[in-house]
Simulated scan of single mutants.
Amino acid sequence: DLAAAPGVGVDRPRSPQPLVTAAPRADLVIWAPPDVAAALRPRAEDFGRTRGVSVTVESVSDVRSALQDVTAPESGPDVFLGPHTWLGEMEQQRVISRVTLSRNQQRRLAPKALAGARYDGQLWGVPYAIANLALVRNTDLAPQAPQTYEQLIANGRRLKAEGKVNRILLQSTGSTGDVYSGYPYLRAYGGGIFAKTPNGQYSPGRLVLDSPASLEGARRLAELGREGVIQPDVDNTNAVPLFGDRHGAYLVTGAWSVPVIQASGVPYAISPLPALPRGGKPVPLLDVDLFYVSATAQSPKLAQEFVRDCATRRDVQVRLARATGLPPALTAAYRDVAARDHHYAAWFDAGRDGDPVPSVPAMQAVWGPLGQAFADIVAGKDPQHSLTAAARQISSDLP
């Protein structure tokens, strides 16, 4: 089932756009989200002209759902764009084909982005963007980036006492939790979701949710809940608007929220998540956006050529970065956009040590129980009981 899992892509809205299929069919059909499609279209058409073929880039608001609705191979795309979190399920269901990049091309991509495109030792997509959480602050109220949570809390409490804010930290939790927001605490002391193999791959049969290291981070999350620093009535629907309305000086979110923040007029800056007590270093999850080749592509050789020779071009990834606001995966493109806009460097630095979201099919069993555990912990329930219960449920639901 390729239906979106709870927690996947939270905070990353897509503008609703109708799916329009070209007729007659072009030699190469590409499906992309609206923000990316407009930026990609000129370069894709250039690719077609140089090769004497027709190329259509279709704006699809929900690529994943559209793929489910395909009734015949010729009505689907040759290439489509989406997050790497789809990878494990799509490989298992034979929806995608492996892609081939030269060693030189691979060296030109950020290692974490390339890691997100791999599954079971094979490369299944070409990465073009990286998304992660960071700390966004209102620079009128918080001119300096806090290095520790103690500094953040102290300033937040002072601002609250002065009547300038009514929230110390805006971080998505809600009644069902938010895995993206909770994970950095889980990893801060060496815990996580799945254990890793010596080569860095996730081992989905070995949960470390209820390990001592994970529990240490969960206890800190519980303390922040008890102290009112993180509040359960804040979720992914109201965290950014509350920041824009100046209810809090600090917000945990990703680059996808920047247009809303800018529209609010709040002056802002971005920095890494601050350090937790006792050496805790929060580690965010990374979403890596990929070009995929469909397993039912009508022009498979042309599709492979496009993702190999066009998707890895510097100018293409620069255009996509400007359209999405996300740091590009190609190192040369990242240098270009970061030199002109410091925000790209700020988001990239905040995710530099991040973990790609496990793209294994077993993650479908994780989102709901782990999100609920985070919500329960913030609401005051025992961290050890909450994590143990989540681990038990996930183990029983693992494929």
Rank of each mutant, 00 (worst) to 15 (best):
V57K: 09
D62Q: 01
S75Y: 12
D62Y: 10
E74Q: 15
D78S: 07
T71V: 13
P73F: 10
Q92S: 15
P73N: 04
D62W: 10
S75W: 09
E74I: 10
P73M: 07
D62F: 06
L81D: 04
F80W: 11
Q92K: 15
Q92A: 15
Q92Y: 14
P83S: 13
A72C: 10
P83M: 01
V57W: 13
Q92M: 15
S75K: 09
M90A: 13
E89K: 13
V70H: 05
P73T: 11
D62M: 03
F80L: 03
D62K: 06
S59Q: 06
A66E: 00
T85A: 14
D69F: 15
T71N: 07
L81N: 01
Q93E: 13
L67R: 03
W86F: 15
V60C: 02
T71H: 09
V55M: 12
T56N: 13
R64Q: 10
Q92W: 14
E91V: 15
P77Q: 08
P73Y: 11
S61A: 10
L87V: 07
H84N: 11
A72S: 14
V60E: 03
V55R: 07
Q92I: 00
S61M: 00
M90E: 10
V60W: 05
T85K: 06
E91C: 14
P83Q: 04
E91M: 12
S61W: 08
S61R: 02
V79H: 04
H84K: 09
H84V: 06
V63T: 08
T56L: 09
W86Q: 12
S65H: 02
Q93F: 14
E58T: 12
Q68Y: 07
S75E: 13
H84E: 09
P83Y: 05
L67E: 09
L81R: 02
P83F: 04
V55A: 11
L67G: 05
R64T: 06
A66I: 00
E89H: 13
Q68T: 06
S75G: 12
H84P: 03
L81T: 04
M90N: 05
L67F: 01
A66D: 05
A66N: 00
P73V: 04
F80A: 00
T71W: 10
D62V: 04
E91P: 00
T56Y: 04
E58H: 12
S65P: 00
Q68H: 11
G82P: 09
A66P: 01
V57Q: 08
D69T: 03
A66H: 05
S61H: 01
V70Q: 01
G82L: 02
V60D: 07
D78H: 01
P83E: 12
V57R: 08
A66V: 04
W86A: 06
A72N: 07
P73L: 06
F80N: 05
V79Q: 04
P73G: 11
P73A: 10
Q93V: 08
L81W: 09
E58I: 03
T56G: 00
Q93G: 11
S65I: 00
L67K: 01
T56D: 15
G82T: 03
V63A: 02
S75P: 02
